[in-house]
Design a protein around this nucleic acid. Structure first.
Lengths: 210, 210
DNA sequence: TTTTTTTTGTAACATTAGTTACATCTTTAT
DNA sequence: ATAAAGATGTAACTAATGTTACAAAAAAAA
């Protein structure tokens, strides 16, 4: 595990901390589609992402979903941290978007390191900062953008996170994540196809230019 | 200043930290309507609220606004913290909603205390936690609620924060903060009046029951 | 007092998004 | 091979929100 840690966190953490992480951290392989955290769960450890991607989702009382953002290599889950520290329930769902490798850190260590290592503190604060900005971006999207622009942003984000210009989603899945209806997505996608920006196929969408 | 600190933060911080805060903190009286932080500002100190309320606003590139949430007695600005630590520009605007008393803490001390005092660390983490939840609430509102429900929530929040059942806002001001048009707000308010939930007057709205 | 500005009310209309319904085609299961 | 389930396309309609335009009342300024 030290090798992966050095590759992905070597610039951030000092050797001593890397050693500590490798001693208490638990390496995990998570398959695409696997649910890591459900809303209401109590969480007792925090992930450090090594590879892959995890999508973070919000759900309202009626079961309506909304995609918030993705965690990637070098990221950690700021919301999980706050949950751990405060011993409160998770407000979000976390699902592996790709096959993902991560290291789980028990919450006690997290707290200890926050007092002990300046580099860890900086990492934690930067994570918070990044996540705040992601949430603000989501707020911008849903508050200021129309559905067609949100769909474009969604497709762009998917391409970035999967590093693949073909998006393997059904219209229904996209509709769930943007919290709208399938018909609306089909309509808007068709418009994008007519504009030559995408090509529609069954179960996947080829991105030409966004 | 020690008196105010003890009253509002005495349960949270140990005596030694209270002393430190009173030594380096700068007490400030802020008048209602005063702008504390503008988008793009670099921030070098973090506020601890003693009384009053500060509203936090988001703005998009076209100058369209959206009210995010209020800070109150006992709160601090988590986003300001992350900005300070990361030396990045503010992503939000902060405006005094009421006459407000606060203590400004220079960022260097903040960092120092995070290593030194467990109680300060807990306070910081709890602030992050609270603010994440507020942002999630906003996301819920704009993503899952219709404008009529958002307006109701807006009025409820105003009553809570001002401790006053009369909301002193024009329809235009409400429209700005909810990022919609004045006509829409007038229309929805009129409907609420017909339902007997509010009474409309010039420059203010009397809340009967929400 | 007269004029100007601000605030509110309201009608008429446009646009966006959501819903229902159904057809077609593909894949999977029996 | 046939049936069932899943995915997409599309029309027709409803609902929600946004826009334009203008009138009237109240407050502020000249």
């Amino acid at each position: 595990m030290l090798k992966e840690l050095r590759e992905n966190y070597g610039d951030l953490f000092e050797e001593e901390l890397l050693q500590e992480i490798s001693q208490v951290g638990i390496f995990k392989d998570v398959a695409e589609g696997h649910k890591l955290i459900e809303i209401g769960d109590y969480v007792r450890s925090v992930p450090l992402l090594i590879s892959g991607a995890i999508k973070i989702l919000r759900e309202d009382n009626d079961g309506d979903e909304l995609l918030l953002y993705f965690l990637e290599r070098g990221d950690t889950c700021a919301m999980t941290m706050t949950c751990c520290m405060g011993q409160t329930k998770s407000e979000i769902r976390a699902v592996a978007e790709l096959d993902t490798e991560l290291i789980m850190i028990p919450v006690q260590k997290m707290e200890e390191w926050t007092g002990k290592y300046k580099s860890w503190r900086n990492f934690v604060f930067e994570s918070y900062h990044n996540r705040f900005n992601e949430l603000l971006e989501i707020i911008d999207s849903v508050a200021f953008l129309n559905m067609d622009e949100r769909l474009l942003k969604y497709l762009r984000d998917k391409v970035n996170v999967t590093k693949n210009t073909t998006v393997h989603s059904t219209h229904q899945e996209i509709a769930y994540e943007l919290h709208t209806s399938r018909v609306v997505i089909s309509r808007l996608l068709k418009r994008l196809e007519l504009l030559g920006k995408i090509e529609l196929h069954r179960n996947n969408i080829k991105i030409i230019s966004l």
